[in-house]
């Protein structure tokens, strides 16, 4: 039974890793302050970069832990520098999924209306 459970766990883990690999390519989106926000993914985190002209950006990612999908709390960066990627920190050992970026000037909180999920294949306008 123990073996079966660990095999099932391994299968789920591998599935998640494949899912993570599938979303790996970066995507970008024009944003409301004239810059270009690009989302990139690595094995265990997401980051937002290339945000010239924006006052602030945010990024978060989706990950799986303890049988549930979680979102990391949004990581905000005030006065981001162009050319630098700002990381959404690692949430758990198994990570996957979606990252978002938002530009929220003149509002300082990331209004949900301004969020557009950026996936591997889509380009979204903020």
């Amino acid at each position: 039974m123990k073996m079966r459970r660990s095999l099932a766990g391994a299968a789920v883990g591998i599935g998640l890793m494949i899912a993570a690999a599938c979303i790996a390519p970066s995507a970008s989106a024009e944003n409301s302050c004239g810059g270009l926000a690009m989302i990139n993914y690595s094995a265990d985190h997401a980051y937002v970069k290339n945000v010239g002209g924006c006052t602030s950006v945010a990024v978060r990612h989706h990950y799986f832990a303890a049988g549930t999908w979680f979102w990391t709390a949004m990581t905000y960066k005030y006065l981001p520098s162009a050319g630098i990627g700002y990381v959404s920190p690692n949430g758990a050992e198994l990570n996957s999924g979606q990252a978002c970026a938002a530009v929220y000037y003149p509002s300082w909180t990331c209004a949900y209306g301004s969020w557009e999920p950026v996936t591997a294949t889509s380009y979204s306008s903020f």
Binding site: N40, K49, T75, G83, G85, Y86
Partner: peptide, 13 residues
């Protein structure tokens, strides 16, 4: 600019 972008500079805020 492209060259700098390709460096993939990442920081933890």
């Amino acid at each position: 600019e492209s060259c700098i972008n390709e460096l993939d500079i990442v920081v933890i805020p």
